[in-house]
């Protein structure tokens, strides 16, 4: 049985909108609309979509914060809306923008408090704390109150806090938002290691597509409350008819290169940018360019996944009449 099972899940909200000066009009908004998917143990799934697509509504239902309007939901064999408290012991949650730690408490006290709240036995707690302190480099921060931590430090603290009770599933809502490149890298490395070492299933929402490129074997794209894509990252590229770019440095500046199967996108002195379909082989293009021009250097850049997703969002088959 899958660890997370979502069947025909829907959540509607009644939003009162101001019409004119005093009148208000009730409007039903489908935040999540007939959503179905499953996640198996050990997967690392990226859950992406534009703002307001229904990502956090889904996560809130998966954690039991929100009760679904319709549909079936099971997380680790538990119905989140019925047994929220029981579920909390099996999952960990990290909200990127707001900490779940206690603002005025030093990290060490926050962790100790969590130990007692989650009733983690002392030996296991010590082991986990030692491991996370090492992996997340928290050693020097344990006695600092959370409010004095930088965003990156706080995020590391939050991660450790969410994992102290050995959850089977970790939900991460924008875990890398606002972090610098080094912190992001370190964080991703940590997430990979808890996934492989501890077999923690990860579901993360993000705006940073590098998170997904580097972490997730599977991507789910949600828009207007429905899944518009569920599969591998490679498949997503194909789906969005994305392109790769060949950057050619010629010995001398020349007219735009004319080779079959590639179009010149930009010319800057001796350097030219050519684009060709992502699923086509680069070899014939490179060969054709090298045969006709004096080439000083060549490089290929991978497709920009952001473009791909933008295409999916705005693609003709996704137009809605709402």
């Amino acid at each position: 049985m899958s660890l997370i099972q979502v069947e025909n899940l829907s959540r509607t909200f009644v939003v009162r909108r101001r019409v004119g000066r005093f009148r208000r009009e009730a409007q039903v908004v489908r935040a999540v609309d007939d959503l179905s998917f499953t996640v198996d143990r050990g997967e690392m799934v990226g859950y992406i979509g534009p703002n307001g697509a229904g990502k956090s509504t889904t996560i809130k239902m998966l954690t039991g914060i929100l009760v679904p309007t319709a549909g079936r939901l099971s997380v680790a064999g538990i119905d989140p809306s019925r047994d929220r408290v029981e579920l909390t012991r099996r999952i960990g949650v990290v909200f990127g923008q707001r900490t779940t730690l206690w603002w005025d408490l030093p990290l060490r006290d926050s962790f100790e408090l969590l130990r007692r709240i989650y009733r983690v036995d002392t030996a296991r707690f010590r082991r986990n704390l030692a491991e996370f302190t090492e992996l997340l480099d928290l050693g020097g921060l344990l006695d600092t109150p959370v409010r004095q931590l930088s965003l990156g430090q706080r995020m590391r603290g939050d991660l450790a806090a969410a994992l102290l009770h050995d959850p089977e599933i970790l939900y991460l809502d924008e875990p890398t938002i606002g972090l610098d490149v080094v912190s992001k890298g370190r964080l991703r490395e940590f997430l990979r290691s808890i996934n492989t070492e501890r077999d923690v299933t990860l579901l993360l929402t993000t705006h940073d597509l590098q998170d997904i490129e580097q972490l997730c074997s599977r991507v789910m794209v949600i828009d207007h409350g429905s899944l518009v894509y569920d599969g591998t990252l490679a498949g997503l590229h194909a789906r969005g008819s994305s392109t790769r770019t060949l950057v050619v440095d010629l010995v001398d500046a020349a007219d735009p290169i004319d080779v079959p199967g590639a179009d010149v996108r930009r010319v800057d002195g001796p350097r030219q940018w050519l684009s060709f379909p992502a699923d086509a082989s680069a070899a014939p293009v490179v060969a054709a360019v090298a045969a006709r021009y004096d080439v000083a250097d060549l490089s290929i850049s991978e497709p920009d996944i952001e473009d791909v997703i933008r295409q999916i969002y705005t693609g003709p088959d996704q137009l809605r009449f709402s």
Binding site: T88, F95, R98, I117, Y118, R119
Partner: peptide
Amino acid sequence: RMGTFDAMMVRPVP
């Protein structure tokens, strides 16, 4: 309002 009530909801305490 601040959204920190959600943090209370994911803890195993009433």
